[in-house]
Simulated assay, not measured.
Amino acid sequence: MQHLLTLDGMPRATVVELLDRAQHFADLDGDADALHGIAICTLFFEPSTRTRMSFQLAAQRLGAHVLNFDVSTSSARKGETALDTMRNLEAMGVRGFVVRHHDDGAVAHLAAAARAGTALVNAGDGRSAHPTQGLLDMLTLRQAKGPDFATLRIAIVGDVKHSRVARSDLHALRCLGAGDIRVCAPAALLPDDGTLDGVRVTHDLDDALAGVDAVITLRLQRERMQDGLVDSLEGYHRDYGITAERLEGAAPDVVVMHPGPINRGVEITDEVADGPRALILRQVANGVAVRMAVLERLLAA
């Protein structure tokens, strides 16, 4: 595995190995030294808090040198392409690139042009994929519900059309054999590209939540959508917002996840986001462990 671009088509054994290794790092009391002296650059062309910070912390905990690329103060402002930026950093000895980009396929394009020995991790490209988010979500589910995904009933709720997280979660859930996957959203926020093949789709939130063991609610991505796809934020919350009352129809031990950032009072209420059912901060913590496992897999000798 030279790069991590997507979870689509990844062998189940590889996913499980990465999750096992991530659990090792989650349990580790202290740092590792697997990437001592290796230079890694977080090459982000979109804003990020959790993903960028957790990749930086993961690389540091592995002993790597971390370079933080800031597009607002870089030569990209002068017209330099992402490919030229990568090639210049490769010439300085950077071996690992964690790339976030607003265009679908942009990270794969860079990976195809990378030198032998250079590794790229897709930290989110357009609507396509966010593989480490998919892995950390699976690690969080496995910790909460056990390793047998075949028995799980999981609802993904919200803006699937614009969500690279939803796509990577669906790739991972299918790979791990999840038995009952439901997707719930207004029709305007559902993709028509085959993403939902084999998934039960409903527009009724109560139907989607009935008896589920886990809810993955998604951010309403207003920066990627055209005006008019949602009538109003109030109406969206009324029909698709996760509240304590709506969760009464789920399994008694249901857990709630969200990739962040949260639009409180839109996708989810404060009562749920800050309550005992929420695993949102555990997802954030697991992000460091998962990204340590991925960087080690790609870059350790």
Rank of each mutant, 00 (worst) to 15 (best):
L5K: 06
L5A: 02
T6Y: 01
D8K: 14
P11D: 06
T14C: 05
T14A: 12
L19R: 11
F25D: 05
F25T: 11
D27E: 14
L35H: 05
G37V: 00
I38F: 01
F45Y: 15
P47C: 07
T49V: 12
T49R: 13
R52A: 13
M53W: 10
F55Y: 02
A58D: 09
G63D: 03
A64T: 06
H65K: 13
D70K: 08
T73S: 15
S74H: 03
S75H: 01
A76P: 00
K78P: 00
D84Q: 10
D84S: 12
N88R: 08
E90Y: 05
V98F: 00
H101M: 07
D104F: 03
A106S: 14
A111C: 04
A111M: 08
D125M: 02
L136D: 13
R142V: 00
Q143D: 14
A144C: 10
F149Q: 03
F149G: 05
I154K: 04
I156M: 15
V157W: 01
D159C: 01
K161V: 10
H162G: 01
S163Y: 02
S168T: 02
L170C: 10
A172G: 15
C175K: 09
D180Y: 08
R182T: 10
C184K: 12
A187Y: 09
L190P: 04
V199G: 05
R200V: 07
H203S: 15
L205I: 09
A208S: 10
A208I: 07
L209R: 02
R219S: 03
R219M: 05
Q221H: 03
Q221V: 05
R224A: 00
M225H: 00
Q226E: 13
V230S: 04
D231P: 04
S232I: 15
Y236T: 11
G241N: 04
G241D: 06
A244N: 10
A244V: 12
L247G: 13
G249W: 01
A251R: 06
A251K: 03
P252F: 06
V255M: 15
V256E: 07
V256W: 12
H258N: 09
P259A: 10
I262E: 04
N263L: 12
N263P: 00
V272M: 12
A273M: 08
I280D: 08
M292N: 07
R297V: 00
L298E: 07
A300C: 07
A301E: 14
